[in-house]
């Protein structure tokens, strides 16, 4: 049996999507512009893209670059962030560097990287890596800094070495914060993935989008936007499930209902 509240909770996102598409549909019908297809036209174009072998290979190549860039970024950023959080010397060294890199849009670095490494996979993966690294480092750093001193002392009294304390106390204690950073990183990975393919146009989902734009296939352009958006929603949903499982111990026990319902 599903309660009424649970039903409403499930129906809400569906309603939101349907509502958005409806507004799009009517706006498009009203404007009657060639470059603004209706929602139905855009959705109709999706099977063509996903059915096309070449497009599919392109999209999968994008996802592969994204996975590699994200994976390497997470594996390097978490240890760095944790070390920064527990060692003043490490923080003092890396903080200014990161402060300089943080506000620079990573796509703005692409021309330079392309000069050095070409327009291939390495360049794009590197840009994704840079995009993901900073939020993950930052959140790991904050998470590690906030770890209660007494918790580390308790571990030290049990005989844990400094390295063991970092891996077995700081890492799990900071995990909720780290995963918040990873979630931001995941969205940024998707964004930098598309941007990198828009700049270095050779393959990938971003390339399909811009080729279609060049050729005036506006329904394909909009269909690609829907596909990329759907990819983002799915990745985030999967990540959120994994995250919730990993940090079940830290979540509040009860959903506090807001009083405006």
């Amino acid at each position: 049996m599903i309660s009424q509240a649970a039903m409403a909770k499930r129906a809400a996102p569906v309603l939101a999507c349907v509502g958005l598409l409806a507004i799009w549909q009517f706006a498009s019908l009203g404007l009657e512009s060639d470059s603004f297809p209706t929602a139905i036209e855009a959705i109709r174009a999706i099977p063509d893209i996903l059915g096309d072998k070449e497009s599919l290979i392109n999209i999968l190549a994008s996802l592969r670059r994204m996975a590699i860039g994200f994976g390497i970024a997470v594996l390097l950023s978490i240890p760095l962030g944790l070390l920064m959080g527990r060692s003043r010397a490490v923080a003092a060294f890396f903080n200014p560097l990161l402060m300089i890199i943080y506000p620079v849009p990573k796509a703005a670095l692409m021309p330079i990287i392309m000069l050095w490494l070409g327009v291939g996979d390495i360049t794009k993966t590197l840009v994704i890596f840079l995009g993901v690294s900073l939020p993950v480092i930052y959140h790991s750093f904050e998470g590690a800094k906030a770890v209660e001193e007494k918790m580390l002392w308790s571990g030290a009294a049990m005989g844990l070495s400094p390295l063991q304390r970092l891996v077995r106390i700081v890492l799990p204690a900071a995990l909720p914060e780290i995963l918040t950073g990873c979630r931001t990183g995941l969205v940024l990975a998707l964004i930098t993935m598309i941007t990198s393919e828009m700049i270095a146009r050779q393959s990938g989902a971003g390339n399909i989008l811009f080729n279609a734009l060049d050729m005036g296939q506006y329904d394909t352009v909009y269909a690609m936007i829907i596909i990329v958006g759907a990819m983002g929603i799915c990745l985030d949903a999967v990540f959120e499930r994994v995250r919730a499982r990993l940090v079940r111990w830290s979540e509040p026990q009860f959903d506090m209902p807001l009083s405006f319902s």
Binding site: E148, S154, P172
Partner: peptide, 13 residues
């Protein structure tokens, strides 16, 4: 020497 702190300092995970 085993400490017990006012803040408990349990491992929440």
């Amino acid at each position: 020497r085993g400490p017990v702190f006012q803040e408990f300092a349990l491992f929440p995970w």
